[in-house]
Amino acid sequence: MKKLILSTAVAALAAGTAFAQDDSTVRLGTEGAYPPYNFLNDAGEVDGFERALGDELCTRAELTCEWVTNDWDSIIPNLVSGNYDVIIAGMSITDERDEVIDFSDPYTQPDPSAYVALSDGIDLENSVIAAQAGTIQASHVASMEGATLLEFATPDETIAAIKNGEADAALADKAFLEPIATSDAEVTFVGDDVLLGGGIGLGIRESDAELREQFNEAIQSMKDDGSLNTLIEEWLPGSATF
């Protein structure tokens, strides 16, 4: 075993000296499973609001960027261990995440989360609410006094759960639920929207202050000339603009 690791390391060393090391590309990590923020289109490429936004930001900051997808669960550990440089995956700015990584300025307003259910008049305080495991919505439901949290691996399954009666309601990002509620006659919004998190920002390593500044400038310039608002209106209808 040792021998194998050693020979791999030697091969890797050889590769390291062979390439020039100048213009490094910035790798953008996303989940690719969170429409309309980011998803894979029919061609299998990253698409969505953040694809358009990320490409524009890179052009403005004059960076060469490349898209990679990573599982949501390990998206932060892989950032801090350097497998990509930026997280652009609909990640809300929260205190606990901010302890581990840095965030750029938000590029959306705090995103409203909403409840969906099969019928109106559900007492949300005392019902079974489905949410995707590991999201801010799941921790919100966990802290609601009378409600019971039912966690699923994917947001798809939370919608399936209210349809088959496992859960009374589902809590998720409003932008994600919007198209479902309009296209699916069974599902309707219930209750009031809740504001969780502090808007969505780019996740960047704490040691990468320079890169963060570059992106902040680019985001600011997009806010100034209104192009960010145009993108938000195009991809996230109904969301607040800047």
Partner: peptide
């Protein structure tokens, strides 16, 4: 590859190695 690197590899939560030590290199194709 970078014995004279001034910073430590573990900076808080971050794992930072010099650019030449990255595997694969930052500018290599997908």
């Amino acid at each position: 590859l970078c014995p004279e690197w001034p910073d430590t590899v573990r900076q808080g939560n971050d794992f930072v190695v010099c650019a030449q030590a990255k595997l694969p290199l930052g500018n290599s194709p997908q």
